[in-house]
């Protein structure tokens, strides 16, 4: 059932400190960024919260920059901005590949990386990338700023470790060591929700993360260990069965997700194996 929107409380923050002050006194408010998930939730009556704070106009939360070791992406950076960013193209091309496959251009123009993280859907497309890149979430509140390792950001299905009054302001991503690989298997070729997502990094060690195969994004630690220690791809595929436990839902089946996740693992390995000849 659709939510009646007229009585929902919308508070407008025009600066970050205004937003943080408001969140400090009224921590039940949901921050509104690109709203591409919020309105879907309201439309289907899945959101019970009645109070919101608009942070869309906080320019200090936008933009992409780099230093010697890190990329920094403002929480309100849209998918379109990431697609067009030369910094992303150079250091995190898998993020560009990912952003191009999120929704249509209309959603890419509005959806933000901070929103994708805060929403915490297990199907969130950017999350496997942040997991293998071992990003840090920069969360700010009136009492200060803290860096949360992305890998410990989720406490469970759509649950984050953000404290009341905290807002995601940026993501810091160490420049990934090794070859990047991303693939989304969605319900169709475009404008799709993922059924399996994989992000892989192959350098001296191997890092692998999967989306849509568990309650949150999953780092495939056992599989990584096999591959990092010189195991075969067959052994890695066996290990993967212990790392992920996909389920049946409206969009796909457990068997399909498992099979495809294994196939993607092999494809990752093949396409990142340096040419022998």
């Amino acid at each position: 059932m659709k939510t009646a929107l007229g009585n929902l409380d919308f508070a407008d923050a025009t600066t970050l400190s205004e937003a943080l002050t408001l969140l400090a006194s009224e921590p039940d408010r949901v921050p509104l960024a690109g709203c591409t998930d919020v309105y879907v939730g309201l439309n289907f009556g899945h959101i019970e919260k009645k109070r919101f704070v608009n942070i869309w106009s906080l320019s200090e939360l936008r933009g992409i920059s780099e230093n010697a070791d890190f990329l920094r992406i403002g929480a309100l950076t849209t998918y379109t901005e990431m697609i067009e960013s030369p910094i992303i193209a150079k250091f995190l091309p898998m993020m560009r590949d990912c952003a191009r496959l999120i929704g249509g251009c209309q959603v890419q123009n509005r959806g933000t990386v901070g929103g994708n993280i805060a929403n915490g859907s297990p199907a969130g497309d950017t999350l496997p990338i942040l997991a293998v890149a071992e990003a840090m979430i920069i969360a700010q509140s009136l009492s200060g700023t803290r860096k949360i390792p992305f890998l410990s950001f989720y406490a469970g299905y759509r649950k984050t470790v953000l404290l009341p009054g905290e807002l995601i302001v940026a993501i810091e991503i160490p420049k990934p060591p090794g070859a990047q690989w991303f693939r989304k298997v969605g319900t169709r070729a475009a404008n799709a929700i993922s059924k399996v997502v994989i992000a892989g990094l192959r350098g001296e060690t191997v890092r692998l993360a999967f989306g849509s195969v568990g309650p949150t994004v999953i780092r495939a630690r056992r599989t990584e260990a096999v591959l990092s220690s010189g195991g075969t791809i067959a052994q890695a595929r066996d290990a993967l069965a212990h790392d992920i436990h996909p389920i049946d839902d409206l969009r796909s089946t457990s068997r399909y997700r498992m099979q495809v996740a294994e196939n993607l693992l092999s494809a990752f390995w093949d396409s990142t194996t340096p040419n022998q000849s």
């Binding site: 919308f10 509104l32 690109g34 591409t36 123009n109």
Partner: peptide, 14 residues
Amino acid sequence: LPINSCLVPFGQVQ
């Protein structure tokens, strides 16, 4: 920029 007007609160187009 093209956007979906079903996903944008009026307050954000001020």
